[in-house]
């Protein structure tokens, strides 16, 4: 087996939605750009459709990393003691799964990376709370993407983030400032237990976190590093650090 080269398996928890009203039942869906980014890193994306909380302990030993993707849906506010807005697009099944998946991945030292909704899930799973409509908070920027624009415009860099000196973020960015995209209405309010804020927007919003004391890669970012990462050295280095941790995990999981 020593000569056999494996690819680390990365679990991307799916979202649940209807394609349109005429479609039967529901669908488990994954935005293709995440699968493309994971593949470009030399990792293999894997979906476990309809996986439930009880499956997490059985499935985690089979995989080498967890990527929590962004989504049009919001984390349901009941998970942090508030009430969902009537305008919220929700995905309760994903919430239920990821709340457990975040905690269990950290306990078992499986590399985990949260993007956008994924960061918010990490925060809420660890006891934090979210602003439900950032743009209605006094003093906060509107972090949403402009409507009815081309994807390139919606995913364009929109604001700076200030990075903690000496942090991995600063190392990936090659400095303490980076410009990032911004496509979200929710955002971190109270920081979850064990999370360290290492990147902030100019309005003070926590946009990048590290899990304190994690035994492997455990980071979350509010922006979308999977978007055109190969043209964006900060995004690319962040993703490569995650991929490196997944490779390391696979070595430990597999007997040599």
């Amino acid at each position: 087996m020593a000569t056999t080269r494996h690819k680390p398996l990365i679990w991307l928890p799916a979202c649940h939605r209807h394609l349109d009203l005429n479609d039967p039942g529901g669908y488990s869906v994954l935005a293709d750009r995440y699968a493309l980014a994971v593949t470009a890193l030399g990792l293999q994306p894997v979906l476990f459709p309809m996986a439930e909380v009880a499956d997490v302990p059985c499935l985690l030993p089979m995989i080498d990393g967890v990527l929590l993707t962004g989504s049009p849906s919001n984390v349901e506010a009941t998970h942090f003691g508030a009430t969902a807005l009537s305008t919220d697009l929700l995905d309760p099944r994903r919430d239920k799964l990821t709340m457990r998946l975040v905690r269990e991945s950290l306990e078992r030292a499986v590399p985990i990376f949260g993007v956008c909704r994924g960061l918010q899930e990490m925060n809420v799973a660890l006891g934090g709370s979210l602003y439900q409509t950032l743009h209605e908070q006094p003093g906060m920027l509107d972090h949403r993407e402009p409507e009815n624009e081309a994807l390139e415009v919606q995913f364009a860099e929109r604001h700076d983030v200030l990075l903690e000196p000496g942090s991995q973020f600063a190392e990936w960015a090659g400095g303490t400032r980076a410009c990032v995209n911004s496509l979200h209405g929710q955002g971190i309010h109270r920081l979850g237990e064990g999370l360290v804020a290492e990147a902030r927007a100019p309005d003070g919003l926590v946009e990048g976190v590290r899990v304190d004391g994690a035994r492997t890669f455990a980071y979350g970012v509010q922006w979308h590093p999977e978007w055109q990462h190969e043209q964006h050295p900060f995004y690319e280095r962040t993703l490569r650090a995650f991929a490196g941790a997944c490779r390391e995990h696979m070595k430990q999981r597999e007997p040599a």
Partner: peptide
Amino acid sequence: LTGPSGHKQLYTCIDEV
């Protein structure tokens, strides 16, 4: 698929039935 803010993007879809 189209998102609520007008995104049109390619998705991998698995029928849940």
